[in-house]
Design a protein around this nucleic acid. Structure first.
Length: 374
DNA sequence: AACTCGGGGAT
DNA sequence: ATCCCAGAGTT
């Protein structure tokens, strides 16, 4: 067996011989761990009296929320910005939701920002500003699901929680050559992942698995020759690692179309309004638009039509959301100084010049519309 | 279990 | 173009 080849002196932390990943993965992590803004260096197993350096729970939580379905490269700048604006969870709890949404703008999945703000308030006001140190309590927090609860417990508190994200799913599916497709095979993956989670250095192990998936065991063209756990990998033995995990086919994205209505005054101000608190782009700022339908031609909005003399602008703005493509045709109308207030009232919005855009909670699709037209 | 919910980088 | 990303919440 593989584990019997290790010197006994290195085995004390991994006496359960069913642990075949951690003993090889952690030494690799000690050498190859990525430097990330929210991460402290790997815990070195030094003398017994040595203090382990765990990352700050607030930092771990903030980064994990941002990292949900979002790449490390994208998150870095947002993480540093949030930490600069709100150094502590109490600071974030006291912020206005609109400020949080503005700082989050462009990162996507805006329900995360709303839940982030609510969670900060729960921690600050009900938990004395201290994050729970166990999965069950973490799971109750807004925006914290099974993955994030395990990740915080492991990384911030070194609890032996089974951390299973897309990277870990891929590594486990390949290591055990699991050929059933996701999401059906998820339960089996979680069971195996839990069985491999070590009692020691659990936080490092979790991050090592994710680093491995991100840099070696990649979705395509995995670098098996460089892999620290290549020896026990059934997927590699069978020559099918790159094909795993299998996934159910995805649905085709329909195309939705709409008219965006750009009210402009003589000085270049634009009329913007806030979207409903829930649903797509919830709570974000938008250019008023008609309905977003799937018909071959976009639908005019009777109410907005009557508020100005509209002219169609050249070209269309294209944007792809998670589950549909979006094509926006742009309409523009000049608004006189005397009617600005009245129209703003009817539309339910307010006037803004281009210099103010960066301070507004504008999602990317709305920035595209504004930068094309303004 | 299926669906909603952004945006960008890699290929 | 497609895939996938340190997934969660709702139905």
């Amino acid at each position: 067996m593989l584990e019997t080849k290790r010197p006994l002196s290195e085995c004390t932390a991994f006496q359960d011989t069913s642990l075949v990943i951690a003993p090889r993965l952690l030494p690799w992590y000690d050498r190859h761990a990525r430097e990330l803004p929210w991460r402290k260096g790997p815990q070195k197993m030094r003398g017994s009296g040595d203090q382990r350096e765990l990352a700050v729970p607030y930092h771990v939580w903030l980064s994990e929320i941002m990292l949900q379905q979002t790449t490390v490269a994208t998150v870095k700048a947002y993480f540093l910005k949030f930490l600069a604006i709100w150094p502590t969870v109490e600071d974030l709890a006291q912020a206005d939701l609109d400020q949080v949404l503005t700082a989050w703008a462009g990162l996507g999945y805006y329900a995360r920002a709303r839940n982030l703000h609510r969670c900060a308030q729960v921690v600050a006001e009900e938990l004395d500003g201290i994050f729970p140190d166990n999965e069950a309590a973490l799971l109750k927090l807004p925006g914290v699901g099974p993955y994030t609860a395990a990740a915080i417990a492991a990384i911030a508190f070194d609890r032996p929680a089974a951390v299973v994200d897309g990277n870990v799913e891929r590594v486990i599916a390949r290591f055990y050559a699991l050929q059933d497709p996701l999401p059906g095979v998820k339960t089996e993956i979680r069971t195996l992942a839990a069985k491999q989670t070590p009692q020691e250095r659990s936080g490092d192990y979790a991050q090592a698995m994710m680093d491995l998936g991100a840099t070696i065991c990649t979705p395509r063209n995995p670098a098996c020759v460089l892999c620290p756990i290549q020896a026990g990998c059934l997927g590699r033995e069978k020559g099918i690692a790159a094909e795993l995990p299998k996934k159910a086919p995805k649905k085709l994205k329909p195309i939705r179309r709409a008219f965006a209505y750009l009210f402009r005054d003589e000085e270049g101000s634009v009329l913007l309004r806030r979207r409903a608190e829930s649903g797509l782009l919830g709570g974000m700022v938008e250019v008023p638009s008609g309905s977003w339908g799937e018909a071959p031609e976009p639908e005019r909005d009777r109410f907005l039509d009557d508020l100005g003399h509209w002219s169609l602008l050249e070209g269309q703005v294209k944007h792809t959301f998670t589950h549909f493509h979006f094509e926006i045709s742009l309409l523009q109308a000049k608004v006189g100084k005397d009617e600005k207030e009245q129209i703003a009232g009817k539309v339910g919005g307010s006037w803004h010049v281009a210099e103010e855009f960066s301070g507004l909670a504008l999602p990317t699709v709305m920035k595209k519309i504004l930068y094309q037209a303004v």
